[in-house]
Amino acid sequence: MDHRRRTFMTFSALALAGLSAQWAALEPDRLTAAMHGRHVDGELVDWMEDTSAKLVALPTEQRQHTAKLMDAQLETVTDLLEQGRYSEPVGRRLHLLAASLAGTCGWHRFDQGRHYAAGKLWNAALTNAHAARDRDLGAGVLSDFAYQSIWLAQPDAAVEPLSQALVHTRHPTARSLLHLRRARAHAALGVAADCHRDLAAAETALLTDSPDPAPAWCQWMSTADLAVDSGQCMLDLGRTDEAHARIDEGMSLLPRSRDKTRGIFLTYEARSLLHAREVEQAVTVANRSLDLATRIGAERCVTLVRELAPAFKPYRRVDGVAGLMDRLKSG
């Protein structure tokens, strides 16, 4: 039996056992009644919030197998909003939950390379964040749209949404991420002064203490992200040596738990190594990135590695390049 299949079967048994135990604690007809226009109570919303949080918190490699569970959660919450009866506080919680689930489901589509579907889900997330009167969450969704634009080589479309998002959020961690993404957009556009200004603002914000926890959509933001994305900015601006140093720094700081981010960072590192003409090392790093992206089921990350192929082509006679090129073609 395939190792990934065994892992999924083990996880499924554990997850379903946990979900079943929690579900058994609810009155059996509570969800059915709520779905048919009857009162949605706080205990049901408690359970859905708890279940959704556990699904979102799973390691990346396991989350690829829970997409249908997440979709079902989102559909259920949407049905409750449309068909159930609830108080204003419960309605706000349902809208916040719908926004969070739609955002997460959008990221899953994005990782699969299904960009239109991701955009539709993020639009739903933005609508629900607005209905919940949570401007901070809405800023996070705008940031996701902007990141997608940068990823699809449309950085000019990212600058305005990020500028709008910065108006609507005050937490320093959130502002750091927004400035960092806007720096990426400016770098891709070749606007060095604006890029450096945003990088400085991102660093200042990240080092600013706050009595409040960071919003859920940016809690993962760290000095590792700042370092690697700064390196990618330097690469786009043609400052190869500085880019390589920053990416190396970020890779050393990244926690093991963030496999998807590690895969993206490895690809950035391979690109910076190619710019520095350290081809054999670039081959090693690109192979590691491809292995990781394939294992976690992130087609977007696999595509990112494949986009390195033209840069490797002039070095086909270098040891390892032909094998990597064959892998990139066969995938």
Rank of each mutant, 00 (worst) to 15 (best):
L324G: 02
P59I: 07
A157G: 01
D136G: 14
A139L: 04
R246W: 04
A33W: 10
A205C: 15
R327W: 13
E27V: 04
R135I: 05
E280H: 12
D229E: 11
A13V: 11
C105T: 08
G106P: 01
Q62P: 00
L81Q: 12
F312Y: 08
H65Q: 02
S330H: 14
L162I: 07
A185F: 01
L166W: 00
L206V: 12
A124I: 02
I264E: 12
A13Q: 13
S100F: 06
V279K: 12
S100D: 12
T267G: 00
R182D: 00
M70D: 02
L237T: 14
V77D: 10
Q64V: 11
G263E: 03
F145C: 04
A293N: 08
A21C: 03
D144V: 04
T284C: 01
G119S: 14
Y147P: 00
A99S: 15
A311L: 12
D248F: 01
E299L: 01
A185V: 11
D111N: 09
A243D: 06
L206W: 07
A282G: 14
L80W: 06
R184E: 15
L44A: 06
V141A: 05
H65I: 03
G113M: 03
S176W: 02
P89Q: 09
R300S: 03
A72K: 14
C301V: 13
L304S: 03
H244M: 07
N287T: 15
E249M: 07
C301R: 01
D29H: 10
E278L: 13
E278Q: 13
E82M: 05
D241V: 08
Q232L: 07
A193Y: 06
L137H: 13
G84K: 15
A165E: 06
A202V: 01
S210T: 06
A293T: 11
S210H: 10
W23S: 12
T32F: 05
A24E: 14
V90E: 12
R327H: 10
A224V: 02
F265V: 08
A57Y: 04
Q112M: 09
L178W: 00
A13F: 14
G91S: 14
I264P: 00
L180D: 01
P255H: 09
A21W: 05
Q22T: 04
D144L: 13
A57S: 10
R239N: 12
G140T: 13
E269R: 15
P314D: 13
E203K: 14
D229Q: 06
L274Y: 13
A118V: 05
G138T: 05
A139T: 08
A57D: 15
A21E: 11
L69A: 15
E307D: 13
E88D: 14
P155Q: 10
D291Q: 11
A129F: 00
G238I: 04
L237N: 02
A13P: 03
G37M: 09
E249W: 05
C218M: 04
R288S: 14
M251A: 11
G323M: 06
E307T: 12
T240S: 07
L166H: 01
L273V: 10
